[in-house]
Design a binder for these strands. Structure first.
Length: 737
DNA sequence: ATTAGGCGATTTTTT
DNA sequence: ATCGCCTAAT
């Protein structure tokens, strides 16, 4: 077991303590993944069969990387490991056991969109106005109830106000319909196995023997259901190892519960706890900034993080005028990093709080021809054309999938509108039929128009045909011929627009993904593919080999590291994000999110904030985040920006003058001027009536009117402090704010 | 009754 | 970018 020498003594202990419950509290960059990896390799090398080990990770990517590393350490034996995300592992188990739950093994998995659309269906059938009650709000209540193990009955009993009563009714109908559709949502993938383990001791016992050793990564982000699940699996042999960092818990909004860490100690009093506090990732400067920041949280397990790494560069704070300036200056820093410091683009990540922020950053990168990859955002499998195509396949695999049926019934259009589908649904409901089967009885349905009847007939013939074809040809042939017959690709081609072209590409890509899947997995059925795709996350297909800058949300960045990291938009309201009221707990989660971002950086960290930014279609004034104040001044260097550029419509790169101010006692100034700077031009053209501007001498004011043109363009400005002034724009330096 | 097309609102984070 | 809601055309 020579590989153990690659670990420090604490890590070694954590690896070698294989019996009994173990908790590893590990700071960022302390080799948490390493410990998990080596622990599994160690177990295998002392003779534990790989199939007796269950390792749960947060993303599929983390799982496959870990698997690869274990394979390098112990070879082929690692193949049979049970490793993956909670959802994918238990979906796999459910495929085997679901008949005990009165589900069929071709069940569909509903993602959030599918689930929301079913909530709407439920609300409609219960005559609950979706104007009055937001389907999303109801969905989120139901999901959080499920994650807290509150049953339909319990929820009904304890619902107090009218909203909860409505939710309760929807909850009940929703669960009923899921079952009818032979479908499960994400929550069910965990809840159902738990139900099964509770009700069927035999099954539980089988899995007790299966999973003699259980390991859980990112334990701080598990919710109650996940807790209960691993608890029930580990209850017999108690060989359970959880690894996590309370300071990196960022999923409370999804039901993750830090209490799980505390309860772990209560449920396993004999637990051995290891603390990994040495950081191997970041410079001293970055680590201490992170540490100071997180110490502002009340809720935390105190840790003493330290590192042998050098101090490194100061953290650079870019104070920007607006979001475009922010993008432009991030780009210029990327140039500096990649040209002067020879950093690869793939070693640079730009992170942000909300997906919406990526737009202005992408623009800046594109304008400067910097290649980038974006994690998440509008995900491939969320695209309408992809979901529609998948819905057909889903329906072929699971004929009871009414949600899938409704999705494709009129795609492409067959003259089946709301009314016709309503008729079909009530016909089906009366006879307890699935929509697909009901559609075979077209002629018996009353009140359908000729057009609708025709359309329904076409649809059911088509589905019947492919249902038979399914058993004869491979999954990839089937989908190709289906797409072909539907004319999906053809119609996009004909449309000829840029959007249609991208849709065309997406459907093509989906088809290749299916082909690839079938060639990689022998005898792969369509349902295997569908299960796989419904559980992939954005981070999973992050390809680290392409030489491109990575853009992603702070949430997606968890578990990753990059030599150079930017965190954009450190502004009040954005990071921390204000949702409604910012309670202490919510604020602390935002702070942890910022902490996660900071600790992704190995060598160089940039924090940016803008004074104004486009938000919800309007310009909003932003003040710097409190988190910037919470980082010690010694760690940071602030680079102010003085930019002059005319208007949002201006498409060039903003011209700028940077003034570097070292934030210390002996301030050190140096300016660097960007080339071909032409302030007059910019200022004159940009000013418009109604704008707020700033004058070097007169301060802030509002533009009341403009007169003249070219060099003699004059403006009347009402200044807050000195009143009305008439200015010749050629000479007056006005900053637009 | 159905569809296409336009307009406005909406986006916190995600397995 | 997508969805819901509206209107006009068929």
């Amino acid at each position: 077991m020579s590989f153990l020498n690659e670990l420090n003594s604490k890590q070694q202990e954590a690896v070698k303590t294989v019996e009994g419950p173990v908790m590893v509290v590990a700071g960022p960059g302390s080799g948490k993944t390493r410990v998990l990896t080596y622990r599994i390799a160690y177990l295998i090398s002392i003779g534990v069969p790989a199939y007796r080990i269950l390792a749960l990770t947060f993303t599929n990517k983390a799982a496959s990387e870990m698997k690869e590393r274990i394979h390098k350490l112990v070879g082929e034996k690692s193949r049979q490991l049970w490793m993956g995300t909670f959802h994918s592992v238990f979906a796999r188990i459910l495929r085997v056991e679901c008949e005990k739950l009165e589900y069929q093994k071709n069940f569909s998995i509903y993602d959030e969109t599918d689930s929301l659309s079913m909530i709407k269906t439920c609300m409609e059938s219960l005559s609950i106005s979706s104007q009055q009650y937001h389907p999303r709000a109801i969905r989120s209540r139901i999901s959080s109830a499920k994650n807290q193990l509150i049953s339909v009955q319990e929820y009904a009993d304890r619902s107090l106000d009218i909203f909860e009563q409505k939710t309760s009714a929807v909850y009940s109908d929703y669960q009923k319909r899921l079952k009818q559709n032979n479908a499960m949502d994400f929550d069910d993938l965990l809840l159902k196995p738990l139900e099964l383990f509770k009700s069927d001791k035999k099954v539980l016992d089988k899995y007790h023997e299966y999973f003699r050793f259980i390991l859980v990564d990112e334990y701080q982000d598990t919710n109650r259901v996940q807790y209960a699940l691993i608890n029930s699996l580990a209850s017999k042999y108690k060989n359970i190892c959880v690894v996590g960092d309370d300071a990196q818990s960022i999923y409370a909004f999804r039901g993750a519960d830090i209490k799980n860490i505390l309860d772990f100690r209560r449920d396993y009093p004999e637990v051995t706890t290891f603390r990994l506090e040495q950081n191997y990732r970041s410079t001293t400067t970055i680590l201490s900034a992170a540490d100071y920041l997180i110490k502002h949280n009340v809720d935390q397990i105190s840790k003493n993080l330290w590192t042998d790494n050098p101090a490194g560069d100061a953290i650079t704070v870019l104070s920007c005028e607006d979001d475009r300036d922010e993008g432009a200056r991030i780009v210029s820093q990327i140039f500096e990093q990649s040209n002067k410091l020879k950093i690869d683009l793939k070693d640079i990540a730009i992170t942000y709080r909300t997906n919406a922020q990526s737009r202005s950053l992408e623009e800046a990168l594109r304008k400067n021809s910097i290649p980038y990859v974006i994690v998440g955002g509008i995900e491939f499998y969320q695209r309408k054309e992809v979901k529609d195509t998948l819905a057909y396949l889903r329906l072929l695999v699971n004929p009871q999938d009414n949600e899938g049926f409704l999705r494709i019934a009129n795609y492409p259009t067959r003259g089946l509108g709301d009314a016709a589908l309503q008729r079909l649904q009530s016909f089906a409901a009366e006879r307890q039929l699935s929509l697909l089967v009901a559609a075979q009885h077209t002629v018996e349905i009353e009140g359908l128009s000729k057009k609708a009847k025709h359309g329904l007939l076409m649809l059911s013939t088509l589905l019947r045909k492919y249902n038979e074809l399914k058993n004869e040809v491979s999954a990839s042939e089937l989908s190709r011929s289906l797409v072909d017959e539907l004319g999906i690709l053809r119609s996009f081609k004909e449309e000829g627009t840029v959007e249609a072209l991208s849709r065309w590409e997406n459907v093509q890509e989906l088809l290749s993904a299916i082909s690839e899947f079938t060639s990689e997995h022998e005898n792969a059925a369509l349902e295997d593919f569908l299960q796989e795709v419904s559980l992939v996350s954005a981070v999973d297909d992050l390809d680290g080999n392409r030489n491109a800058v990575t853009l992603m949300t702070l949430h997606s960045a968890k578990g990753l590291e990059y030599p150079v990291v930017f965190i954009a938009g450190l502004e009040e309201g954005l990071l921390p994000l204000y949702s409604t009221v910012l309670e202490r707990k919510e604020l602390e989660e935002e702070r942890r999110l910022c902490y996660v971002g900071i600790t992704r950086a190995m060598q160089k960290l940039y924090l940016t904030h803008a004074r104004t930014r486009y938000r919800f279609g309007d310009v909003s004034y932003q003040s710097p985040s409190r988190f910037l104040e919470e980082i010690p001044k010694e760690c940071i260097e602030i680079v102010e920006s003085k930019i002059f550029y005319p208007s949002r419509a201006y498409t060039g790169v903003p011209k700028q003058v940077n003034t570097r101010i070292k934030r210390s006692n002996d301030a050190e100034y140096h300016t660097d001027v960007m080339p071909d700077y032409d302030s007059k031009e910019c200022v004159v053209n940009g000013v418009k009536v109604g704008m707020m501007v700033e004058h070097v001498v007169f301060g802030r004011g509002k533009v009341l009117s403009l007169a003249g043109s070219g060099d003699s363009l004059k403006a009347v400005v009402e200044f807050t402090l000195v009143g009305r002034k008439n200015l010749l724009l050629k000479y007056a330096k006005l900053n637009i704010i």
